[in-house]
Every structure is written in structure tokens, then in C-alpha cells.
């Protein structure tokens, strides 16, 4: 048991290592991955200003813009990463090695978190300094809890996606691309999700960021009652359920897809 845990952790650290080292080798990513996305988020801020939106909406956009970093990380550095790894010939090595695929995926996530969290933090900081967004920290403990559970559910979903992407060829890139803007829309990254029709919001709640963003916004901007889709406690409970569901499902899906990919000879295929 102890040896299994040690192997899991060592695998995770080993997969996180090249990403962390990679990030420190070419530091100019700090510009392209932080300043540029901040400017992109600022465009939505100025759009809201141009149509005379209440100031809480500026904060709403800043939080949404920051959270795009995590969605992009899950899509590109986790879900479709196995496709890239397959292409580079690493996937077969992962399968042949004694470590678990879940540890490898968690390592990817942990390694990517430096860039992702830096990007999110710069957007939040930029929102505060440049646009004077006032975040309420009255419920900071609940905010941390909501963020942590959202991340657990989101990365669980990423692991589940990764298992599906094991079977994909060139379409993996396009599927990831396709999952960007529609999720920005359905999860309400730039507007309160409660403004969408109920059935759309209910369906979109399967993406953890929908409820996670809504809960965090309610906690950060308690003075604006229009932001909430459900109560924060309900949203946290639902996120917890999603986290358990996705992490549990990804464990089975990874094992199943790995077997299927072995049977169909897809682990080393390079459909270009």
C-alpha cells in the first residue's frame, strides 16, 4: 500500500517536472501567457464600460477571464495532451511504465498549474489595479473551499476527457478547439450564468466551472444579488458530487480506454 502511494507520487512528480523546468527555461511565456490574456480580458471590460454596465460586471469579467486559464489548461494540457504524447511516442512508454495513468495526468495538471495560476493571478491582480475591481473577502474560507472543489471537479473532468482523447487522432485538436467558446458561453464566463434560460444553465452545470464560477462570484461580489444561479451551499454540494463522479469515472474510463486502445492498436498510431 505504502509502496503504491510512493510510486503514485513519484510518477506524478516525474510528469510534473518537465513542465516546471520547461516553464523556467523560457521565461518569455510570462509575457504571452499573462499580459496578453489580461489585455484580452480587458477588451470585455471596456465593452461593458462602453454600454454602461454596473461596475460589478467589471469584476465579473475579470473573474471569468482568470478562470479561462484553468479551462484552457484542462483542454490543452490535459485532455488533448495524451494525443500529443501519443504522437511523440511517449504514450507507449507511460503504459509500459509501472506508474498509473492517473498519476501521470495529475502530474501534468500539477506541472501546468504554475503557468495557469500565474496567468489567473495576473488577470485578477490586473483587474484590481487597472480597473479598481473591489473583491469582497468576507467569505474567504468559503471562497477557498469553492475554488478547491471546483478545481478537483474540473481536473477530474479533464482526466475523463483524456481517456476519451486516447482514441482520437487528428480530430483531438479540433475537438479541444470546439470546446472553448461554447463553454465560455454556456458556463457564463463573461456574464452571469443566471441570465441564460434555466434549462441551458442546468445542462451547462455538468461543466464544473459553471457552478464554480457562479459560487465564487457570489462570494466575491455579495452586494449583487443577480449573479447567483443557486445558493452557494447548493453549488458547493453539487461541485463535490461532480468531483466524486468525474474522478471515479475517469479511473474506470482510463483503464477501459487503455485496454480498448491496446486492442485496437491505437497507442502507437500516428494518424496525421
Amino acid at each position: 500500500m505504502a509502496r503504491g502511494v510512493e510510486l503514485f507520487l513519484r510518477t506524478m512528480i516525474a510528469r510534473a517536472y518537465p513542465r516546471i523546468i520547461g516553464a523556467t527555461r523560457e521565461r518569455s511565456w510570462l509575457f504571452f501567457e499573462t499580459v496578453m490574456p489580461l489585455l484580452s480580458t480587458a477588451a470585455y471590460v471596456f465593452f461593458y464600460r462602453a454600454i454602461n454596465a454596473p461596475k460589478e460586471y467589471i469584476g465579473l469579467v475579470v473573474v471569468g477571464g482568470a478562470m479561462t486559464a484553468y479551462w484552457l489548461n484542462v483542454l490543452w494540457s490535459m485532455s488533448s495532451q495524451l494525443y500529443w504524447d501519443k504522437d511523440a511516442g511517449n504514450l507507449a512508454l507511460y503504459i509500459a511504465a509501472p506508474g498509473s495513468m492517473m498519476a501521470i495526468l495529475l502530474g501534468m495538471a500539477a506541472g501546468g498549474l504554475i503557468m495557469t495560476t500565474t496567468r489567473a493571478a495576473i488577470i485578477i491582480l490586473g483587474g484590481w489595479l487597472l480597473f479598481g475591481v473591489e473583491f469582497s473577502l468576507a467569505y474567504w474560507a468559503l471562497l477557498m473551499l469553492a475554488f478547491a472543489i471546483t478545481m478537483a471537479a474540473l481536473y477530474g473532468m479533464g482526466m475523463l476527457f483524456a481517456s476519451l482523447f486516447l482514441l482520437f487522432g487528428r480530430e483531438a485538436w479540433h475537438i479541444s478547439n470546439l470546446l472553448q467558446e461554447p463553454i465560455y458561453l454556456l458556463s457564463g464566463f463573461y456574464f452571469p450564468v443566471s441570465q441564460l434560460p434555466l434549462w441551458i444553465t442546468a445542462a451547462a452545470s455538468i461543466v464544473p466551472l459553471t457552478l464554480g464560477l457562479d459560487a465564487m462570484r457570489q462570494l466575491l461580489f455579495p452586494s449583487n444579488p443577480t449573479f447567483g444561479f443557486l445558493g452557494v451551499d447548493v453549488e458547493i454540494a453539487a461541485l463535490l458530487a461532480l468531483a466524486v463522479l468525474f474522478i471515479g469515472a475517469s479511473r474506470f474510463a482510463l483503464a477501459y480506454m487503455e485496454r480498448l486502445a491496446m486492442r485496437e492498436g491505437r497507442l502507437t498510431e500516428r494518424r496525421r
Binding site: 520547461g22 523560457e26 504571452f32 489585455l39 484580452s40 464600460r49 462602453a50 490543452w76
Partner: peptide, 25 residues
């Protein structure tokens, strides 16, 4: 650039979106 700059095009396009008056004057 190394491959972790895969998003460089999107980043620059996103930044220019702010300053060229695409969605607001």
C-alpha cells in the same frame, strides 16, 4: 519559440482585440 507558445497567435490576436476597436469605439 518552444511549443509551449502554441497559444502565441491567440494571445496576440486577443490583445489586439482590445486596442483596435473591434467591439467598442
Amino acid at each position: 519559440m518552444a511549443r509551449h507558445y502554441w497559444s502565441v497567435g491567440e494571445s496576440v490576436a486577443g490583445a489586439l482585440y482590445l486596442v483596435c476597436g473591434a467591439i467598442f469605439p
